[in-house]
Design a protein around this nucleic acid. Structure first.
Lengths: 337, 337
DNA sequence: TTGTATGCGTTATCAC
DNA sequence: GTGATAACGCATACAA
């Protein structure tokens, strides 16, 4: 069943049917109703493929994320799909596994599909191919929104980021308020902007409170739990181990907690812990982890809204959204000193 | 840049360029190379939209899930996207929020896009609209695979299910082996096949071991943690509370654990607990929950493979895949009797 | 082995 | 208000 058939059955031209489909004003209401009736009767749904070809753009956006196992990104995707859905857009999901090469492939593959826009948490934040392709998209009229991570050379692009610096600053200040002075941070991959910003917040808090920053208390892992486990081990093996540890993301909090559990330590007792990004289940089962929380669903929703704005108005200004964080204290920020 | 331009620049016809793009045999290798060179030089990528319109099918599949917050479903999606990606298919994600009306809308919306197939964990398992639309898809040549849940009237459809009955049977048997006789189950929404099957396994284990099945030990919630919390509360308030509880899914395990935590009880100590679906983080942080585990990633991958088989061969036989479960014992199956 | 011509299902630009 | 008809970019049957 296609538009031609409907036209024939309704005794009008395809142009008229098209007008009805697209709610064009200039159709006599009698004709409109007749067409609607025929469409309904034959359960007709216009082909988006054909429309896209003619219109030279589709109501589909691409969401590119680095890790489909991380709950943060699912929250993000949930926010994205919710706003997309509300606006009758559909979402294609791509996983890059934190691999810049894979990301390059994905961004190439997206080109063939005529997506209306791209939302991306980049893996290749310093890979010129990623930057180049994203710029090409922008220039050819396909808006791009960077979510959660900046990329090198991506200055003119829209961004939706958490206020990582402030969040980390507040967390570290809280640890200081609790009396801690030997405060460590388990950071992630240095090239990622959130990692960098979180370290900045940590440093600022220490500096403003007159606590010297010691290199041995800054452990660099990656974004994963295993490396964080090693970092925690190294920190706790120091002659003067830290009395408080700030963990750079949810996976890394888990790595640290696992080390502690295996060694009979308890967060908020032997060592103070504050993590970045909440892990709901822990609280449910009585493991009180204090965290810097941000709403990933909001971030996803905001990102999609900005994307839509650009899709609907090519002159829309570049936006830089900063989503606030919130310190949730549950007791693990305390510890024997 | 389109196929016509490439043809002109390479001094051939569009048909030849098309043949080169689609790796048709019958092209002289000299011509082929020339065309490839021009395509590369101009960074040309064919329009999937146009190809889809001409070919009357796209390399896109739709994945419809009921809850993007549940780790089970995003494990599923990870499996789906991995296999899809390997086969150069792209995945559209739809979230129905366990709402049959929403699902109906979604399934309608998918019609306009010419997807190659549909993977669905249905919300409206007894909604005739869902069944009807899925059947229409099948009949019109768009294969459908039911994942994790059967639907009423969906007998002829491909399925990828976990072996819920056996998994639950084994879990319950283990509880019996531990000496328990007052064994409860927190089940979910009765209309969902996994819920039903898990209850069956539970019942069979009791029956085979000569333990009478008592209604008061069967608590029905929904798939969410909150209702499970209430169920646990009710169970524990009985004059003869159960000494062991089998929880119907991951969210429901969490609800039960939360109740226990708030009331100073410990799994494997005051009450024996076995859950369905693993919750990795708990183990990391030293909460040993015994579970019936299944690989949701495998389920997703398998489902996508079956879908691809039908896409590539319209005569492929209907498949019913049963993914085995695995009982992981971590200590919570024990308890003082 | 290659080219020509037609169709895929829409939208949009003209006319009327 | 409505109707022809030319795009949109590609695949393919048929010719050559």
């Amino acid at each position: 069943m296609n538009i031609k058939e409907i036209a024939r059955l309704a005794g009008v031209s395809v142009a008229t049917v098209s007008r009805v489909i697209n709610n064009s004003e200039s159709v006599k209401s009698a004709t409109r109703e007749r067409v609607h009736a025929v469409m309904k009767e034959h359960n007709y749904i216009p082909s988006a493929t054909a429309r896209d070809l003619s219109f030279q753009r589709s109501a589909v956006v691409a969401a590119v994320v680095p890790d489909l196992k991380n709950p943060f990104f699912y929250g993000l995707i949930e926010g994205i799909t919710r706003v997309a859905d509300k606006n009758h857009y559909q979402v294609l999901i791509f996983n890059t596994n934190e691999d810049a090469d894979k990301e390059y492939e994905v961004l190439q593959a997206i080109r063939e599909r005529n997506v209306a826009g791209i939302l991306i948490t980049a893996a290749g934040v310093r890979d010129e191919r990623t930057t180049m392709l994203l710029k090409e998209y922008q220039q050819s009229g396909t808006p791009v929104v960077l979510v959660d991570r900046y990329i090198e050379g991506g200055e003119g692009m829209d961004t939706v980021m958490a206020d990582n610096e402030t969040g980390s600053y507040e967390a570290t200040c809280e640890l200081i308020r609790q009396g801690h002075e030997r405060i460590a941070i388990i950071a992630g991959e240095k090239t990622l902007s959130p990692v960098y910003e979180r370290e900045l917040g940590y440093r600022r808090a220490l500096a403003e409170n007159g606590i010297s920053i010691r290199k041995k208390y800054i452990a660099y892992g990656n974004q994963m739990a295993d490396r964080s486990y090693s970092c925690m081990k190294k920190l706790m093996s120091l002659s003067k181990p830290p009395t408080a540890v700030f963990c750079g993301n949810n996976q890394m909090s888990l790595g640290a907690l696992r080390y502690m559990f295996e060694n009979g330590m308890r967060a908020g007792d032997n060592v103070a812990i504050i993590g970045f990004d909440d892990i709901d289940v822990l609280n449910d089962v009585g493991i009180p982890l204090s965290v810097v929380d941000r709403s990933e669903k909001d971030m996803g929703g905001k990102a999609m809204e900005i994307l839509l704005r650009h899709i609907n108005d090519s002159d829309a200004e570049v936006a830089h959204i900063s989503v606030p964080t919130r310190l949730i204290l549950r007791g693990s920020e305390k510890a024997k000193l």
